[in-house]
């Protein structure tokens, strides 16, 4: 076995532990005085990636803006699990209007703050993938095009989870949802053209576009904090596994998110003014199969009637992402397909 240099990464996660960092490099969450923008006691499922992502994102935004943040939320799981009256988890000013209008509402809030000369107060809009990629797409594009001073965050769990796991335009091919059942010759969601919102956002040439996952929360915090140093329209797209909708174990949320990135299915990068400025390289290149197998929404690809042909097509998508963003570098290790997995496929 070849020897590898010792790196100060957390075992298995490649995350750097706080204790190895200087105070100012430490995570927002490690600060006992963090704001707790979304307080405990909300009603998200165990292991909800969206709750985790939102908590990290908003606390980071709060730190960056010295506590001067107003949030606008679209309808969806995040809105529902955080606010059944008379309880609210929000310790930031929070407005929910409709499913499809959060970007425009955020524009309105930003306009009001500007006209009142309160530019110290920053606006963060938030929505699920449905509220961003589908029904809120028009208002989001309008907000981008006008370059309104809003950071918009999409919590992408790849489906309409709040209404019971239906397909959205962000649902990946072959995934089973309540409206793309795992039946028929092409089980699960169709292989469409996809609707890659980070790239669409970049096409608006806005100041900042980034993707992130809840597997690398330090990276997520950094991106939010960086976004808050800029003005104008900014967009962060966070992959947030949903144990309920994806059929993954609640304890696997971080692992699933990490494999989405390490397989190349979910490229993690940053772009400024329409150009990619950095990518998070894959550390251990993992076959998509390892990612898929953790989720029952892909169970029909394995099991009694396996569909290696479909797994291959999904692998091709990952490979294309890797090529497009240059996600593999000299330090990337290759992880072969598990022997056991191979046997099941063949």
């Amino acid at each position: 076995m070849t020897k590898r240099p010792v790196r100060f990464y957390q075992v298995g996660s490649f995350a750097v532990g706080n204790r190895l960092l200087t105070d100012d490099q430490r995570t927002v969450q490690s600060d006992p005085n963090r704001t707790n923008s979304i307080d405990s006691g909300h009603r998200a499922c165990q292991g909800c990636g969206e709750a985790l992502g939102a908590r990290y994102a908003l606390d980071a935004a709060m730190r960056a803006a010295a506590g001067r943040v107003v949030t606008v939320n679209a309808t969806g799981c995040l809105e529902v699990f955080s606010t059944p009256y008379p309880e609210t988890s929000w310790r930031v000013p929070w407005l929910h209007s409709l499913f499809g209008n959060a970007p425009a509402v955020a524009t309105g809030v930003a306009a009001a703050l500007r006209v009142k000369g309160r530019e110290d107060v920053r606006v963060v809009g938030q929505a699920g993938d449905g509220g961003t990629v589908d029904i809120g797409f028009g208002t989001l594009s309008g907000m981008f095009e006008r370059n309104d001073d809003v950071l918009f965050i999409c919590y992408d769990n790849e489906g309409y989870m709040n209404t019971g796991v239906q397909r959205s335009a962000a649902t990946p091919p072959a995934a089973r949802t309540a409206t793309t059942d795992a039946v028929g010759p092409e089980p699960g969601n169709v292989f469409g053209q996809g609707k890659d919102l980070p790239r669409i956002a970049m096409a608006h040439d806005i100041a900042y576009v980034a993707t992130a996952t809840v597997a690398d929360l330090h990276d997520l915090e950094h991106k939010v904090e960086h976004a808050m140093t800029l003005r104008g329209a900014r967009y962060i797209h966070i992959l947030v596994p949903c144990p309920l909708g994806w059929g993954s174990a609640s304890s696997d949320t971080i692992k699933v998110a990490r494999l989405a990135k390490e397989s190349g299915l979910f490229p993690v990068f940053e772009a400024e003014n329409g150009r990619v400025t950095s990518v998070s390289p894959i550390r251990r290149r993992t076959p998509v199969e390892e990612y898929l197998r953790l989720q029952r929404r892909y169970a029909h690809l394995f099991g009694a009637h396996p569909r290696p042909d479909i797994v291959t097509r999904l692998q091709e998508i990952a490979d294309e992402n890797i090529a497009r963003y240059g996600l593999v570098n000299d330090e990337t290790e290759e992880i072969p397909v598990l022997e056991e997995a191979k046997e099941m496929v063949h």
């Binding site: 107003v70 407005l95 209007s97 499809g100 509402v105 955020a106 524009t107 028009g138 208002t139």
Partner: peptide, 13 residues
């Protein structure tokens, strides 16, 4: 839809 939504955000702020 955006016009009324912007008005909502502005008014709430």
């Amino acid at each position: 839809f955006a016009a009324m939504s912007v008005s909502i955000g502005a008014s709430a702020a």
